[in-house]
């Protein structure tokens, strides 16, 4: 039953997505790939759209993935699933235990989770890179490098570095996505004419 599955999976994602925004991406990626809901590149496109529209990334992603698997009902259930754990946890905190964060045990639990989330986000980025840039999903695969996406990534590294040096500011996510779209088109045209 896809609806129940969507709801339960997104409930789980909502319940352990510490670290805001990108914190839930590793688990969400695992979920969509394991269930065969999306391919790696579809998942990346969904992130791009969710980042360039208003609203929290988690809600946008849940709606998008839910809609792709189960239409309007699927998107409603996935979205409800992802917000429900937060809703009840915060309700309990606001009503009963406002000084939750002052308990040493809770602090210790969160402090163990934070480096783990950072590591999982990095791992997700690296394994996505292996798949998209080199066509490698596990080490037994033969490498088939995709020079276009690799070049775009390198250009973005340069642009990010230049922006930090020149303006002392990082590029915004939307600027990075816009740049990468332009690079993608230009490189494709160059590659197909050469």
């Amino acid at each position: 039953m896809i609806y129940l599955k969507l709801f339960l999976h997104f409930f789980k994602i909502g319940a352990v997505s510490f670290g805001g925004g990108y914190g839930m991406l590793p688990l969400m990626r695992e979920t969509v790939l394991d269930n065969g809901w999306l391919t790696e590149s579809q998942f990346l496109s969904f992130i791009a759209v969710s980042e360039s529209t208003p609203g929290p990334l988690a809600v946008n992603m849940a709606t998008f993935i839910g809609a792709s698997q189960g239409g309007i009902a699927g998107s409603l259930l996935a979205t409800l699933g992802v917000i429900m754990p937060s809703f009840f946890i915060i309700l309990v905190i606001a009503a009963l235990i406002q000084n939750l964060l002052k308990y040493e045990g809770v602090k210790a639990f969160l402090s163990g989770i934070r480096p783990c989330i950072a590591a999982l986000i990095l791992t997700a980025a690296v394994t996505m890179g292996f798949r998209i840039f080199f066509g490698i999903t596990d080490i037994r695969n033969r490498m088939s490098a995709d020079y276009r996406t690799i070049t775009v990534f390198l250009l973005l590294l340069l642009a990010g570095f230049a922006s930090k040096k020149k303006r002392g500011k990082k590029l915004t996510p939307v600027a990075i996505l816009a740049l990468s779209a332009v690079f993608g088109i230009v490189l494709q045209l160059i590659f197909s004419y050469s």
Binding site: G19, G21, Y22, L25, S41, L44, S45, I47, A48, E51, R114, I117, A118, A119, I121, L122, A124, A125, V126, M128, G129, I132, F133, R148, T149, I150, V152, F153, L156, L157, G160, K170, P173, I176, L177, L179, S180, A181, V182, F183, G184, I185, L187, Q188, L189
Partner: peptide, 21 residues
């Protein structure tokens, strides 16, 4: 064509968020 590039852009975003954290 654009989404070919955007895939790399999203990986860049996730990678830099991870590095920053």
């Amino acid at each position: 064509y654009a989404f070919q590039g955007i895939q790399a852009g999203v990986i860049y975003l996730i990678f830099s968020a991870g590095i920053q954290m």
